[in-house]
Design a protein around this nucleic acid. Sequence first.
DNA 1: TTAATATACGGAGGCAGCCTCCGATTGGCT
DNA 2: AGCCAATCGGAGGCTGCCTCCGTATATTAA
Lengths: 187, 187
Amino acid sequence: MTEVKPMRADARRNYERLLEEAQRAFAEHGVEASLEDIARRAGVGIGTLYRHFPTRDALLETLLRTRFDAQAERARELLTHPEPLAALQAWLAGLGDATRTFRGLVELTADALSDESSRLYASCHEMREAGSHLVERAKTEGALREDVTTDELLLLLHAASWAGGHLPGPGGMHRLLALVFEGLRVS
Amino acid sequence: MTEVKPMRADARRNYERLLEEAQRAFAEHGVEASLEDIARRAGVGIGTLYRHFPTRDALLETLLRTRFDAQAERARELLTHPEPLAALQAWLAGLGDATRTFRGLVELTADALSDESSRLYASCHEMREAGSHLVERAKTEGALREDVTTDELLLLLHAASWAGGHLPGPGGMHRLLALVFEGLRVS
DNA sequence: TTAATATACGGAGGCAGCCTCCGATTGGCT
DNA sequence: AGCCAATCGGAGGCTGCCTCCGTATATTAA
């Protein structure tokens, strides 16, 4: 079942050229980069781009799926880290960095995480699961408030990443993430 | 100096019709609403819109300036509130609510606050000043960490507001803002 | 090799939005 | 009433989105 006929040689070539150029374009101009431009640079008609990737999201999803998988893997590795809270924070920081490779990506992933009908939702589901294990561990070891959910933490992380993107220098996100983790009250 | 000739009657009429329709359009479709549509609904040529408001930002700024002033005023009032930290939090919450009247407005104001060359920067300067007094008071009364700046707090607020906009239900922003204020560590 | 055919390609064309420019119009003043 | 500066309006040039379908070609079978 789900027999997958191999692509025709020219189709496969174009598919890969398109992904390369899309990566470049999104990195340079953000997730709103011109699709016509991507097709042009790939030396391909606009129709070909749309045949392979019916929507902008489909194209982005293809580029992002491997990254999500990498983040899931990283979460699993961090489960052996001796400090549960530090592990969680480190994982979130890495995730935040990843969402900054394309301008506008934070918005996209934040939406994907909360909208089950989103195309990207499924793609990042496994990653979320892996992350929630980190959260659970931090809670059971008494390092993290019980009343905070994984989704809230992910959203806070995305918020910090978003905010970091609206600061001039680099490192803004990490500073904000640290602020959130440390809390604001004088103790 | 700065003599201001009164506008011609038709010009003034169009100016006001445009502001009304712009308010409606931005509220309904977010800050990216079609300018041609606004002109159309105002019963005015697109050229007229551009003459009165050379850029989208100019139009938005005109709509927002009075709001910024209101926020500044509110900050001054809250200086008499007995609880400095609660006053600060209340002010930020109100500000956060205000940035949610137009979809996409958070991004705009966050940028405005950190980009001195922005058109909106000057508009919200007074508001920021008023807010920083609230921050200073909270610090001198030992209710707020000394190492947090007004700009960081404003950015965190905008981040919470942004994140709230990416959650399904309402009230998300307040919950996140509370989380930030309470801190995440088990104490 | 060649012929047949499923597969894939490309870009014209229709639509919408941005912004500029300039001939047509009109309010206000004498 | 008549003048003219102020104002208007929208055509036009551009870019980007997306669809549709006539054309080209990789593959397979003969």
